[in-house]
């Protein structure tokens, strides 16, 4: 058993390897960690590299893959790449869920019957409240897309990212996601993390290394401690959670990660529910 597989089996290291597919996005949410926007520098990691990482991650003993951005589905080749990656390990892809027009939905055909789940952001049960931070029409597009994705046989999770939410509002949100076909176990609520654009808007919780999950995250800029690591502020990628610039072979970063997890005291990642 490899050192990574052993650490994952013992619960010392989360099994998921994340990759940032890109950094640009059709939205510009006020709490975005990466200052993503339509004109943000794209920093696309590339299809071949994503497949390579998937293969290396499987060989090293990781158990899952995560893909985030930016908005990954701006990359038209993504569905086929995700399908291919899922032959190695199960994939979770984060998306804002606003790009799934009829044509785009048809392009998701390669994902049907694959071990690929989509995590879609939906923060509030009311359009105006939801769209205040995420942009106009966001709510409508998500509510339209989710049942269609579910109908296609694609597993959908809903992620709610908020400063705080009243119980009654959360109840209405949960009723909504159930109605859209997403069960309670596939709904997560998490805080805004005070990095990226959230810093400028004075939003979210301050999270240090010990407060975020130690999930190896690969971007065009290097390997990071967590998907909350390669954030962008004032156009500059943060380096405080950078592990190594070397990502090929992935074992260089994975071994450094293992070393760092061995030195880590207990943190607040569970208490803050940053997942």
């Amino acid at each position: 058993m490899s050192a990574v597989a052993e650490a994952v089996a013992e619960g010392k290291l989360p099994g998921r390897v994340w990759m940032y597919a890109d950094y640009h996005c059709n939205l510009a949410c006020t709490y975005c960690l990466t200052e993503s926007a339509p004109k943000a520098p794209r920093r696309v990691i590339g299809r071949e590299r994503m497949l390579e990482i998937a293969g290396e991650a499987a060989e090293l003993g990781f158990t899952d893959l995560g893909v985030t951005g930016g908005e990954p589905f701006l990359l038209r080749w993504l569905p086929e790449a995700l399908a291919e990656m899922s032959e190695r390990l199960p994939v979770l892809v984060l998306t804002n869920g606003t790009l799934f027009t009829r044509r785009r939905l048809a392009e998701l055909a390669p994902l049907v019957q694959r071990d690929v789940a989509m995590q879609i952001s939906l923060d509030r049960p009311d359009p105006d409240d939801n769209d205040e931070m995420r942009g106009p029409e966001n709510f409508r597009k998500v509510v339209d897309a989710v049942p269609k994705l579910v109908d296609k046989g694609i597993k959908v999770r809903i992620a709610t990212t908020v400063e705080s939410i009243e119980d009654a509002e959360l109840d209405r949100l949960c009723a909504l996601h159930r109605e859209l076909g997403v069960p309670d176990e596939d709904h997560i609520v998490r805080p805004i993390v005070r990095r990226g654009r959230a810093l400028d808007h004075d939003l979210g919780v301050v999270a240090h290394q010990v407060d975020v999950p130690a999930e190896l995250t690969v971007t065009v800029d290097g390997a990071f401690w967590s998907p909350f690591g390669p954030t962008v502020h004032d156009g500059v990628v943060d380096t405080d959670l950078l592990i190594t610039r070397t990502t090929r072979p992935l074992s260089t970063a994975a071994n450094a990660m293992l070393r760092l997890t061995g030195e880590l005291p207990e943190g607040d990642d569970v208490a803050l529910n940053i997942r």
């Binding site: 401690w225 380096t239 405080d240 959670l241 592990i243 450094a256 760092l260």
Partner: peptide, 13 residues
């Protein structure tokens, strides 16, 4: 090049 201060110091650094 940008000289990294303590706040932006990477984990291994």
């Amino acid at each position: 090049v940008r000289l990294l201060d303590a706040e932006q110091a990477p984990l291994l650094a």
